[in-house]
């Protein structure tokens, strides 16, 4: 696989391969010294035009555990502030000899644009409201681990919140559906994109109606600017209708799990303290982030010969 940019591009085969490979990476991460020489000599650049804590750190940790060199590009200290174009930035970094770009940008499509200007692999760490494929991989892996089986056939996944502006939702709808789950979107009509008739999902405007049949409750972050844009009347009303309260948490099936991609807005979509939820996978999602991103980096950068190197250890 040259790039990892969207769930559709990965396809079901790629998705399953990466999830299986994540198991191997998780095994490495359980070792006393969680580091292998697999990607020695490879250079990975984090090209983040948008703020990120967990995604950027988990990619960098993943790269280091595979012994890749890492470089971090952050907009605030870069020539972008001197007016350098995206193309010049990418070409300049390419000239330094890099093998993969991990890209986050507020504009949809940037990972596809960049690929025209470099031979390096592109890993999409979030482009606008379009795709965030590694988050979906993390979420699918986490659910598979929680339910103890590989197929998600018949599983009811409910995604709640600002679907319209969510790259996490778009990637997860595609990924969960590919693995056989039934996805229901819950949101006020103003936070759903128009023309979702062709999407392979059910739509509901009432969280209370779908709680009892939900196996995986996936809460999305609601940004307060949606109120300023007139998409919701106010955060309180949103929280009352679509927030996860104690009462709603108690109405979930005992086997149901709760997920959130972070960062959480406590008191808006999350009223309940996640620590009080018996089946929260939120910490698991973060923990699995490193293994998943190791699998992606390895898939994109390793070329056959390196496969055995996963068994070796790096001697400090």
């Amino acid at each position: 696989m040259k790039h990892c940019r969207s769930i559709d591009e990965l396809g079901k085969e790629g998705l399953l391969r990466l999830l299986d490979s994540t198991d191997q990476m998780a095994e490495i991460n359980r070792r006393p010294i969680p580091k292998v020489p697999a990607l020695r000599g490879k250079t990975v650049v984090s090209l983040f035009f948008e703020d990120s804590t967990r995604t950027r750190l988990s990619f960098e940790t993943a790269a280091k555990r595979l012994s890749a060199e890492t470089m971090t590009f952050s907009v605030s200290t870069s020539s972008v502030n001197k007016g350098e174009s995206l193309r010049d930035t990418v070409e300049t970094i390419t000239d330094m000899g890099v093998h993969a770009f991990v890209v986050r940008h507020k504009s949809a499509g940037v990972p596809w644009q960049i690929a025209q200007w470099t031979n390096a692999s592109i890993i999409n760490a979030g482009d606008g409201a379009h795709q965030h494929p590694t988050q979906a991989l993390v979420d699918c892996y986490t659910v598979r681990e929680a339910i103890g089986r590989h197929s998600l056939d018949g599983l009811n996944v409910t995604i709640v919140g600002d679907i319209k502006h969510s790259r996490v939702a778009r990637s997860n709808i595609a990924a969960f559906t590919m693995l056989g789950a039934r996805v229901t979107l819950v949101a006020p009509p103003t936070l759903l994109p128009p023309h979702t008739g062709q999407w392979p999902v059910q739509i509901s405007h009432s969280l209370d109606e779908v709680l009892a049949s939900t196996d995986v409750l996936y809460m999305l972050r609601l940004q307060s600017e949606r109120m300023d844009q007139g998409l919701i009347p106010h955060l309180g009303e949103y929280g009352n209708r679509f927030g996860l309260t104690d009462v709603r948490a108690q109405r979930l099936q005992s086997s149901a799990v709760v997920m959130h991609p972070g960062p959480m807005n406590r008191g808006v979509e999350m009223h309940v303290d996640p620590a009080d939820l018996p089946n929260s996978l939120i910490h698991k999602q973060v923990a699995n982030g490193v293994s998943v991103r190791m699998a992606v980096l390895f898939d994109v950068l390793a070329r056959g010969a390196e496969v055995n190197s996963l068994k070796e250890e790096v001697v400090a």
């Binding site: 606008g128 023309h195 008739g197």
Partner: peptide, 15 residues
Amino acid sequence: NECSCSSEMGVPGWP
């Protein structure tokens, strides 16, 4: 154009 493509791409549409 505001259409199923714009929704999939996550970009604002022009109705």
